[in-house]
Every structure is written in C-alpha cells, then in structure tokens.
Simulated scan of single mutants.
Amino acid sequence: MTLKERSILPGFGLTMGFTLFYLSLIVLLPLSALVIKATALTWSEFWAIATTPRALASYRLSFGASLVGATINAAFGLLVAWVLVRYDFPGRRLFDAMIDLPFALPTAVSGIALTAIYSSNGWIGRHLAPLGIKIAYTPLGVVVALTFIGLPFVVRTVQPVLEDFDREVEEAAASLGASRWQTFARVILPTLAPAILTGFALAFARAIGEYGSVIFISGNMPMRTEITPLLIVTKLEQFDYAGATAIAIVLLLASFALLLLINLLQWRFSDRHRTVWRAMR
C-alpha cells in the first residue's frame, strides 16, 4: 500500500491566496486610494496642478538626477562587483560589507553626512570650491545623494551572476583568439546585461522616491533644487491634498512607464542572448 507523501509546505491555493491578500493590503490598496483621491479632480484641474512651473521643474530634477545616478551606478556598480568577485585582496570582506551601508543608514543620516562632506567647508567641498565646483545645495548634490543610495542595488544584482559565470567560457573564447576586451564585450557583458538592467531599474526606482538623503544636500530651493517628493510633502503640510495627489499620480505613472520599458528591454536582451547561446550549441 502506497502512502501519499505529505509536504510541510502549504498548497498552491493557500499560498496564492495569502500572496494576493498581502499584495492587496500592502501595495494595491494604497495605490487604489491614491487613484480614487485623484478622481475627485476634473481633468482640467488635474492638468493645471500637475503642469505648474514649479511641478515641472521638480520633475526635471527628480527624473534627470535619478537617471544620471542610476547610469553612474550601472557603470561603477559593475566595476565594484567585478573587483569583489574576481580579485582576492586584504580587506575584501570589509569592502563587501560596506556596500550595504546605504541600506543600513537612516536616509536622514546619509543626507547630513553628505552635506557635511560636500559643503563649501567640508572635507571634500573645501578642495572643490577653489576650482569653482559646488556640490552641496545644487542639482549636482542631488545626483551625488541618489548615486550613494543606489549603488548597492547594482552591485548586489550583478555580483551573484558574476560569481556563477563559468570561467571555461572565457578560456574557450581566448583559445579561439579573442582578446580580453572581445571576451568581455561579446561573452561576459551579454550575460551580465540583464542583471545590470535590473540593478539600474532598482536604483532608478529607489532614486525617484528618495526623500531623506536629498533634502539636506539639495537646499530645497523651488524651481532649482526642489525634488518632487519634497513638493508633495510641502503640499501635504499646506493641507493641499488634491495638489499632492495630482503630483503623486504623475510621479507614479512616469515611474511605472519607465520601469515597464526597462523590463521590456531586459526581456528582449535575455531572449536574444538565449537565442545566441542555442545557436552556438
């Protein structure tokens, strides 16, 4: 007589139900409330609030600085992950642990520390000031803050893929006459590209909604260094809930569209890479 094996894990129905309940409670309900609140505005009112000069200036700074910061992290995050995986040097474990420091630090502490370092009398700012380079209280300071908080996303997504990469593939490329640059550009980079895009998307998404680490170093000057999350908070403090909701909806839709585009590019890149590997085999 065969006894049916019992699993210690719950079945699909229970786990799927809990997953939907949890996502609805944590994600869908708040977003639905935001959309419902926005429907109280007419289209003309919504457009007038969302396209004020102050709001447009905050969009340009938030999305522009987030894009620049995520791009910098995509390049240097790959470099940092490469060094941590491919080389063994004294203090490597310490440097690896320091990558997660932006996750552990409260965002306000990060902002205060960056402001103290890059202000005109800070450790680094005092050396840049004679050169005419000002970081604190400028859009450049916003980019620095968003780069700081986004680096771990790229490193931690690229690092495991690089660790699992088969070294024999590199040796095969070298035996066929490929140079080191050709091996990296045509063999290693296509494999790492989906992970790099994922890290880029995560860093970009985090930067779009970042608040605590930016408000100290930016200076919060309307039309110049005011980010969109700060504008939303300002409207909430003024009890302008309709205005805050309208701007939040714009931020949400733009972020969702950009993340969807990045995910589509990642999917196409992964599919093309799999096709190439099948052809090679």
Rank of each mutant, 00 (worst) to 15 (best):
S58V: 09
A33L: 04
L162E: 10
G132H: 02
E45F: 07
G77W: 05
G212K: 00
R186Q: 12
V154A: 11
G209C: 01
L261C: 08
A279K: 15
G91W: 00
L162N: 07
A242P: 05
S175R: 00
Q182M: 12
A195T: 13
L128V: 00
A248T: 12
R281H: 15
T39A: 13
T183H: 05
T234K: 15
I117H: 02
P152M: 11
Y118F: 15
F46Q: 07
E170R: 10
T107F: 06
G91P: 07
P139A: 11
S32K: 01
G69A: 07
L114V: 01
T225V: 02
T52H: 11
I135P: 04
V27W: 03
G177E: 04
V154Q: 11
R268S: 11
A104V: 15
W277T: 15
A185T: 13
L61G: 02
A48M: 14
A185V: 10
I135H: 03
A74P: 04
L146C: 03
A207L: 00
L146Y: 03
A65M: 03
L29R: 00
S110L: 10
D271F: 08
V109P: 06
F204V: 01
T234F: 12
V155P: 08
G141P: 09
F184K: 02
L260S: 11
S213K: 00
S32C: 03
R180G: 06
R281A: 15
L264Y: 12
I117P: 03
A97D: 10
P102M: 13
A74W: 06
Y137T: 06
T52Y: 09
P102C: 14
Y59G: 06
L131G: 01
I249N: 07
L176V: 02
G132Y: 00
M223N: 12
G212S: 01
A129G: 00
A40V: 05
L258N: 10
A40C: 05
A193T: 15
A136M: 05
F256W: 14
A70T: 04
T15E: 08
S32H: 02
I133L: 04
S218R: 03
L25F: 11
T51Q: 04
L9D: 10
E5A: 15
A195R: 04
P30H: 01
G219C: 03
R54Y: 04
V144E: 09
A48P: 04
T52D: 11
A145W: 06
S110N: 04
L192K: 12
L79M: 14
V214P: 03
L34Y: 02
I72S: 02
F148M: 05
F239T: 11
Q238W: 13
V155Y: 09
V35H: 01
S44T: 12
P106W: 05
I117L: 12
E168M: 07
T51D: 07
T19Y: 13
L264A: 13
M16W: 07
L3A: 15
L140T: 12
A129P: 00
A174S: 08
P152V: 10
I247H: 08
G64H: 02
I217W: 07
E210M: 00
T71I: 06
V250K: 04
L140N: 08
